[in-house]
Every structure is written in structure tokens, then in C-alpha cells.
Design a protein around this nucleic acid. Structure first.
Lengths: 151, 151
DNA sequence: TATTGTTATACTCTATAACTATA
DNA sequence: TATAGTTATAGAGTATAACAATA
């Protein structure tokens, strides 16, 4: 199994044999540009912890807390605290669901919408390294990834 | 700014204009396959928290604790606890540096080497979606990413 | 009875500040 | 006096288990 020198902060030294393995290692380097995942760095600028940012992104529309828990792969009890803090900050509200009074729907406030918008926009911004590719390379990259993801 | 339906668990709905933006959104979907980052899922299988796994990956060779702290973007005091727990588990040892007795070098034990090896190998494994691409697409993808990263 | 969300508990990660032992 | 690592403290995320309200 081959190795790479350099170690740009993350010691992604090892990669699997073959072009897919090398491509994967290179993709990880793009993800951890500046040493930490982009979505973490972007969240910090907005004073959002990773779980808070994650929850906010999922709240494109109001959702029950249990649905948030499933999508975030954590226990219901964690969501209580995460939503507590977002609520104290005025970014979300708890609404009792009409069809089942046990369920609480979490909805963004106007301020929450604004923060979510900024977060989504920042995360969607591709890294410099991709922007710097030729338009032809960018299109080819997009097309291959579409095929990979199956679209 | 265009949007995408589907929401495979992460609500990566938004993407930036242009092929680079679309490629970036697709790349994120590969990263969060199964909803959580691969390196998190892989760590869980080995009973390693993300910081523990991160530290282990950085310990290809013995390192001072302060260097670990810088590379992990956290305070020295955090490293104490993270290393404490890895040490209790027998994965690392603290060695006093000869040139400066204030410095402690963290070195992997044999068991630590084994766990690190399994962790690195699993993380390096590209997702199914990349493996399923044609060899030609795989090579093209690798070549474009090499250019992006600048090699 | 079963389910949704909460609370209680315990552990880990995080930052800050104060401390120690070296230098 | 400066630096490397530790300890103390406080806040946040995590899982488990017990609980209240509702179904």
C-alpha cells in the first residue's frame, strides 16, 4: 500500500491501491483543507457547534424532534439539549403538533432562517482548489461525480 | 442558487452556481454516505472517538503532546485527557524527551500500531460509489483531483 | 401498553486559567 | 522569565435509563 509525503496537517499518508483509492485520498485533502472539516470551520464563524449547525441545516422545514434525532444519528435526549440552546439563542421555536400532542415540531425563527441561509451558502462554496480548475476539468469532475452518485 | 431534492440524510439541498459548485455538493454526498462522515463511522467500529482516532492517525511516529495539540487545533490541556484514555487502553505510551525533560513524546504501543493500521486502512478505502466507476472515470477523476491539489 | 420528549446520570471533548517542573 | 504539560473548572455533546404526558 503506497504512501504520500507532505502531511498537510492531517497525515493522510496512506491510500488504497488503484486510481479510486488515490482519488479518494485526494478528495479527503480537499475536505480537510486548513486542517479541519469545512463545515466545522464555517460553523465556528457563526458560533455554531457542529451538532447545532447540523440541526439548523436539517430545519429547512419544521421537523419533529425524533426525526432530527434519527437524521443526526443520536438519541432523542441529546436533541432536547441541542434545541434548548438554539431556542435560548432565538434561532428555533418548539411547536406542539396538532395531530399528536406528544410531538414537538422544531421551526426556525426569522433569525434562524438568516443564520441557516448564511451557513448553507458558506458550506456550499467549493474550495479554492476546485474553483481554480479549468472550466473543462470542472465539468468533467462534475459529470464523473454525477455518475458515481448515480444521477 | 439551485436546489436538489432527495435529501439522503444530510439535506445537502443547496449548491453554488457552476460546475465546481455542483461537483463540491456531489463530493459531500460521497463523504457523508450513510449519513455520518466515514472517519466517524470507522472510528466507532474500533471504539475510538473522533479525537482519539485523529490522534492515533497522527502518531505515525512519536510526537510531543504540544505538536498533537497544534495539529488537532485544540488546547494542550485537551490532549492530556485524550492521551490519558488512549494510555489506559494500552494504545500509547508517554516518553520523556531526552533533549528537554519538559516535553513528553507520545508513542504507539504494539497494540496501538495494530489499531492505527486498521483505522488507516479502513479510512483509505474509497466508497463503493467510486469503486463502481469505470477504470477510465477513476483515472480521470484522480488526474483532475491531482491538478486541483497541485501535484 | 406504546411512544414522544424530558430529566437524571455519567463520560468525553472543549476552552480558560492556575499550577508544576523544567529550561 | 518562559515553556510543556497538568489540574481545576465550566459548558456542551453523547448514551442509557427512568419518567411524564399523550396516544
Amino acid at each position: 500500500m503506497p504512501s504520500k509525503g507532505g502531511d498537510p496537517g492531517l497525515e493522510l499518508t496512506r491510500y488504497a491501491e488503484g486510481p479510486a483509492g488515490e482519488a479518494w485520498a485526494l478528495a479527503m485533502r480537499l475536505f480537510f483543507t486548513s486542517g479541519k472539516p469545512r463545515f466545522v470551520a464555517v460553523g465556528q464563524e457563526l458560533d455554531l457547534s457542529p451538532p447545532q449547525g447540523h440541526a439548523l441545516r436539517l430545519l429547512h422545514a419544521p421537523r419533529p424532534m425524533g426525526e432530527l434525532a434519527r437524521m443526526m444519528h443520536c438519541d432523542n435526549s441529546n436533541i432536547t439539549g441541542i434545541i434548548d440552546r438554539l431556542e435560548e439563542r432565538g434561532l428555533v421555536r418548539r411547536l406542539v403538533a396538532e395531530h399528536d400532542r406528544r410531538v414537538k415540531l422544531i421551526a426556525l425563527t426569522e433569525e434562524g432562517e438568516r443564520i441557516r441561509e448564511r451557513l448553507s451558502r458558506a458550506i456550499a462554496q467549493p474550495p479554492e482548489a476546485l474553483e481554480a480548475l479549468s472550466p473543462s476539468d470542472q465539468r468533467t469532475l462534475r459529470d464523473i461525480l454525477r455518475r458515481a452518485v448515480g444521477e
